[in-house]
């Protein structure tokens, strides 16, 4: 039964996940093509100088990409469940409702995490080729909140899509917008250092948010 549920989730998101990851790989490739171009035309020294002392963030193009990924996978996974209230079929399975939901959710998170880790790994590997460890570390500190924003977007999409009342959907979207904003401020490089542990905790806590709207959905809140 569990395998079937996982397979159902995979069928829903596979092309979106593959498409997003492919786009991410191409995007990171483009990012470092620009770095290579900058090195060739301005020299490595000038390029490093702009990053170290002029506030240039060569990875800035990537800022909203994980957020987009979280929204995409969330919508792909949960929106079909609301058409004709299909998720009710899932709730009629001889399994605990919350366990089924958490399994669906965990599968989505794992898929998103695999994609994010792949992209982050590629970013770090290619950064190491052009920059010393201190600069790579500062870059990673800057991009980690963006990936966490992607996970938060996924959790909020689940919460909002499963919410049965439109007015509350609107309020939750407002909360989601302001909440995601704390992950994607535009500070100087590595400024997120002290906030990352707190953002990690908040992201993990948000992972169970969908249970609330799913409960309201099951109980038929209008």
């Amino acid at each position: 039964m569990w395998k079937s549920i996982v397979y159902k989730e995979w069928l829903k998101i596979r092309w979106f996940l593959i498409g997003f990851t492919t786009l991410g790989i191409v995007g990171i490739g483009y990012l470092f093509l620009k770095v290579q171009h900058g090195f060739t035309f301005n020299g490595g020294s000038g390029f490093w100088y702009n990053i170290l002392f002029m506030g240039f963030q060569f990875f800035g193009y990537f800022k909203y990409f994980p957020l987009f990924g979280g929204l995409l996978i969330g919508v792909a996974q949960y929106f079909p469940e609301t058409i004709n209230k299909r998720i009710k079929l899932t709730f009629h399975l001889p399994l605990k409702e919350n366990n089924v939901l958490l399994m669906m959710h965990a599968f989505g998170v794992v898929c998103l995490l695999i994609s994010f880790l792949l992209l982050l790994g590629m970013f770090v590997t290619m950064s190491n080729f052009y920059f010393p460890s201190q600069m790579v570390y500062d870059s990673v500190v800057s991009v980690i909140p963006w990936f966490l924003a992607g996970l938060v977007a996924y959790f909020f999409v689940a919460l909002i899509v499963l919410e049965p009342v439109w007015m509350y959907r609107f309020f939750y979207t407002l909360v989601a917008g302001f909440f995601a904003d704390i992950y994607i401020k535009s500070p100087v490089i590595a400024a997120y250092g002290p906030a990352i542990p707190g953002l990690f905790v908040l992201t993990i806590l948000m992972s169970v948010a969908l249970l609330f709207s799913a409960y309201r959905f099951r109980k038929g809140e209008m």
Binding site: F179, L205, V208, A209, L211
Partner: peptide
């Protein structure tokens, strides 16, 4: 579990507000 998820959402809303 639903109660816990609600408390989390309330705390997040408090943070945002």
């Amino acid at each position: 579990m639903e109660k816990f998820s609600r408390i989390i959402l309330v705390l997040v809303a408090i943070l945002i507000l």
